[in-house]
Design a binder for these strands. Sequence first.
DNA 1: ACAAATCTTGTCTATTTGGTCAAGTTTTTA
DNA 2: TAAAAACTTGACCAAATAGACAAGATTTGT
Lengths: 216, 216
Amino acid sequence: MSRTAPRGPYKPGRIRQKSEQRILSAATAAFAQHGFTGASMQSIADAASVPKANVHYYFKNKLGVYTAVLENILGLWDTVLNDLTINDDPAIALCRYIDAKIDFSRTHPEESRVFAKEMLSGAPHLQEFLEADYGQWLDARLTIFRAWIDAGKMDAIDPAHLLFMIWGSTQHYADFAPQVKQSLHAEILQQAHFDAAAKTVKQVILKGCGLAIASP
Amino acid sequence: MSRTAPRGPYKPGRIRQKSEQRILSAATAAFAQHGFTGASMQSIADAASVPKANVHYYFKNKLGVYTAVLENILGLWDTVLNDLTINDDPAIALCRYIDAKIDFSRTHPEESRVFAKEMLSGAPHLQEFLEADYGQWLDARLTIFRAWIDAGKMDAIDPAHLLFMIWGSTQHYADFAPQVKQSLHAEILQQAHFDAAAKTVKQVILKGCGLAIASP
DNA sequence: ACAAATCTTGTCTATTTGGTCAAGTTTTTA
DNA sequence: TAAAAACTTGACCAAATAGACAAGATTTGT
């Protein structure tokens, strides 16, 4: 019982996991701010406090780092609307989704920015994802929305465009942060700002869809 | 009357104006796709069909090109809401604004992307604009919105967040084009897609604000 | 027509950057 | 504890790139 350091048992890959995490975190910030070409391996290494050669030990090359960052982001893809059924209340579902999206902009702004920059560049590294996972996910959600409309549970609103509205409105708070800060006269965006944002988006979207505000 | 070429009289700067325009246009596309660092002077020159040294003849350096691109974009800033007064009908004003914004995404997607990337990078070259022109423009608009609300012309909705919703929703069609294309199963976005987008956004925003759809 | 201004372009250079490598150090396993 | 595996690191290199520059060509004003 002489060990005081509260670390788990040594295993191959334990150091790897931690180092990769550090590098990935630094890379996410770098890519978010400077883009793929603008973020240098040296700057990523410095931000992660490791020698540059170390980055190349854990990742094949710069594209490897970038791909890992992107995959990590896709892993954060929200699951709020995943188990949606026709029997769900659209008001509650939309509220939950908007809250989750706003919360993502607050807690993962840099991931949101990397994703946005990739989109702006034409999403060359997301084609596979868009055509496979995302395409399926979306089509299933659209089906539910249409069923809600057919059942008279909400106004007849094009579901795809409605989702774009929610995405655009919520991602705005991460992606256009400088503009938002200036508009709200805030040095940094506080929880209260995000709460107000979520409230407004829910208010407009729900009423705009012919739904009453849901409590939970 | 022997001149057949329909060109105006020669003046110093006539060539300059044309060349700068070509370069600026090529640079906009390059910056939109590859970002500031990723777009090389050589690629810009090639796209503009001029030798690279020629780009340096017309612009001081790369930052000079980029600044010119940004200023050109700010010059396209919409004027739809400029002459807004308390006596205007909010429904008509919002409709016009949404239409104009969607139309901008359709006709100037690359300019929208350059602007978005600059925002994502923290807007280092837009601070001045945000604090001066934009700040004033916005505050004046917000005042009108609040007056409308106080007059009972529309629901009590935070005007700043409402504008964010409109911006986010409309810019989405230029900035997240790959995702939109995939969602709509469209190779390229047609006029009809933008019409549907505008219709949905107007439908949701107006009703969400407690306004009836306006005809003009 | 002629001089001055404007414009064009090939070439050269200093710097940055992604990536390699081999020699060392630490951690794990047996 | 000793060999093996995993990890660290400084030094080095080839390629790409922003920018400078000078000489030449074209256009403009007189």
